[in-house]
Design a protein around this nucleic acid. Sequence first.
DNA 1: GAGTTTGAAACT
DNA 2: CAGTTTCAAACTC
Length: 579
Amino acid sequence: MQDSPVFNYINSLSPIRPVKSMPIPHHFSSLNFTSPPSVFTSPHLTSSHKESRFFKTHNSSSSDPTNHVEESTSNEHVAAEADDAKELNVDASIKTELPQINGSETNPDDPVPASPCGGDTVDLSLVPYASPRGENAGENAGGMELQKMYDDNVQGRNETPDWDSLIADASEMLIFSSPDDSEAFRCLMMQRSSNSEKRLMPHSNNEPESSNAVPCEAVSFLHRGSSSIIQETLDQTDHETREDVDQDVPVEPALEELHLSSPKKKRQVCLLKLEAGEGESCKRCNCKKSKCLKLYCECFAAGVYCIEPCSCIDCFNKPIHEDTVLATRKQIESRNPLAFAPKVIRSSDSILETGDDASKTPASARHKRGCNCKKSNCLKKYCECFQGGVGCSINCRCEGCKNAFGRKDGSSTVDIEAEQEEENEASEKSKTAKTQQNTEALIRREESSALPTTPMSIYRQQLVELHYSSSKNMMPPPQSLLGGGSSFSSQYLRKPETSSTQSRIEKSFGTVSENRGEDMPEILSHSSKDNLKAVSPNGKRVSPPHMDSSSPSILGRRSGGRKLILHSIPSFPSLTPQH
DNA sequence: GAGTTTGAAACT
DNA sequence: CAGTTTCAAACTC
């Protein structure tokens, strides 16, 4: 056992050494990461650290020297460990790289390589329009955190690591761009664990991990952010290719097409996963003409940079084109200040407005502007209301509305089902059945996916509303509004109006609400009670989080979501314009 | 995978 | 503001 690479590697790891090797001191001494719940117990202290420790590298502003942390560090790391390249495997890459990823402050003058891929640096791609805020202190603990968890888990017990719990913890501690990222990480770690355990067994062979087929999402995650080391270890060729792709000079579409082959495959797998109801966040855009700079682009509209699963052509929605992105964004917002606001809003007022009985519909939420469907009967995802999992409202100008989540006229799903049985012609029955199946599947998917995508939607929604209620003229730059360098955005600022957003909004917010009575940090309660007491753009009060009756059953399903929420919320006040 | 349908976004 | 065009997702085959 002691001769195994893993054991050696573990021994080579010290909670201190990687940090000491860094040129600049860090500020995480007060952090205690051994126990995730500590996050909750000392919110004031840890929140700022936890909040900021990941933010550092989230900054995408090229004017901020700290933005280069990740890239330069990665480079350093590549150089430093080049000799070990053969020994180095994915495991080590992750373990050793994370501390640097998250916080080393390097010389601002260091050469900064362009992000090799729009999504190669996870943080950049995850917090696309983030401004450098809220990253004052304690910016490097992610790796330490993992390290410590790892040490506790492995060394402390002096036994085979409990990979499940370790991975679970790690997954939750890391800031991922999406549930898929965490899944990817988990996936990777699982693979790693299986490989490692193989090694721990006698007569196991030592296949280099780099030669293993890494699941799509793991690659995706790595691409997006872990490090160039990991990337190189996994797929150097691809990495280099992508660097070419993402240079400032837009590549010829044909050329880009070539490079897309890999992402396309990944996208396919992602889509498969989507169909299996395993998640949605890896669903990405496929823009061809918009350069991903219009609201047509789902990524752009969602406020995120395009990343690897995207199959877009001539994409400008990447960190290297930050200026363009921000300018475009501003322009669009000048045209429609609510362009980037969530399309689906839940508001008690909306209930009143629409005359709907909240109990009749899956949610009291409504589409902000309403749909305009003509042919889909609001029964397909063409309909934004349906897609958002909300009923149509008086705001909708749809024709022949049969929205299963609630018709424009206020009838409920149940009514519809009853009516459909009566009125549907035989020829339509199959169609209806399909539609209903889709609807049910959609609902099921929503119910089953208490992914951390949601809180940001709420957060974002309320933030946006708060923002607009504050002052239109004092509108902070979009990046601060949406990202603020916060990991929150990195995790949640994804697809605010995807098919399952709404119900997850309720459920996840329900999760937060539920937490209040238990171990919710004071600061979080504060945030929720005060800061989130927002008003809508038109000055209407936004209803407090509505606890769905089904929420409790969801609470335990994905604790990661909850923890991530708590990590992130403390950054909230800094994003709010104070007047 | 290619082609079609659909409705939002963008444009006039 | 209304009509038209463009666009990309959703959908169908």
